[in-house]
Design a protein around this nucleic acid. Structure first.
Length: 271
DNA sequence: AAGTGGACCTGCTAGC
DNA sequence: TGCTAGCAGGTCCACT
């Protein structure tokens, strides 16, 4: 589910209420992608200092150490006042004096990982090797061009890999390439410098728009207050196979790259 | 080193 | 109506 916009929308819906919250209890459900990495009881009594984001990860900084959270494909966080009984998909609860923070994740590709310090242990390994933030000034045509140099994979897959720029997932990769007029199958090392420029802008544009619309809700994404996103209705190509291209009217095509669907307009997007 | 495919897990939907 | 195959927002890991 969650790409950068969904993760950031989640963060924004949490940070004000959670800052300063005291952890009163922790409840674990079924195993997630990785073990928590600490005795749950050791979190009790700690306070949430901040909620930050790096790529698609959330970092819940505590007064000592923190929790790195990933929503995987189907995860979402909710913050509710009461103590509703956990359902079968609720696999992590943080009971705080500001409400119940709950990770719901049917597929359990998500994770909550304890770190004694940022960059420490498993969480450090997970964050190492991530590319730059898309809204960071470091993400420019020069950076993208250098990142794509010497790589023969399709540009769509290079965007998804997350080692050049983070946060762009399957929906927004297709969308950004459409906005930039670039064929998703184009070999990375064939992308000219001016087209890198356009792609950088397109990535920012599509992520900004998604952010403004509260992200995409394909089936189950909700922010921490239970609000759904609306970007899916603004998508130009994603999940629009066979429908008319918004620019030229040609039917949108769906292909498979790296076992993931890619959507594009063969007329508007060139090699 | 870079690229590829499999793995993880569950739910939903289209199609027979 | 009921079953099944296929697909889903991610990304790590083993292998070539």
């Amino acid at each position: 589910m969650p790409e950068l916009p969904e993760v950031e929308v989640t963060r924004l819906s949490l940070v004000d209420r959670l800052r300063g919250a005291r952890i009163d209890a922790v409840r674990l459900g079924k195993p997630l992608r990785w073990p928590l990495g600490c005795e749950p009881g050791t979190l009790v009594g700690r306070r949430v200092a901040d909620v930050a984001r790096r790529g698609k990860y959330l970092w819940f900084a505590l007064d000592q150490g923190g929790l790195l959270v990933h929503l995987g494909m189907s995860g979402s966080l909710s913050l509710s006042p009461g103590g509703a009984a956990p359902g079968p998909w609720d696999h992590f609860d943080l009971v705080t004096d500001r409400g119940l923070l709950r990770l719901t994740d049917p597929r359990r590709f998500g994770a909550v990982v304890w770190a004694a310090a940022p960059g420490d242990g498993l969480s450090g390994r997970l964050l190492a090797g991530l590319g730059v933030e898309p809204f960071d000034a470091a993400f420019d045509a020069e950076w993208l061009h250098r990142g794509l140099r010497g790589r023969r994979i399709a540009v769509k897959q290079a965007l998804l890999a997350g080692n050049i720029v983070v946060g762009v997932g399957n929906i927004y990769a297709s969308e950004a390439l459409f906005l930039a007029g670039i064929d998703p199958r184009l070999r990375s090392d064939r992308l000219s410098r001016p087209r890198c420029e356009r792609l950088v802008s397109a990535v920012r544009q599509v992520l900004s728009q998604a952010l403004a619309l509260g992200g995409s809700t394909l089936r189950d994404f909700r922010d921490a207050h239970g609000m759904n996103g609306e970007f899916q209705d603004a998508a130009r190509v994603y999940d629009r196979e066979g429908l008319a291209c918004v620019d030229c009217g040609q039917p949108i095509r769906r292909i498979v790259q790296g076992q993931r669907s890619t959507y594009f307009c063969a007329r508007c997007q060139r090699r």
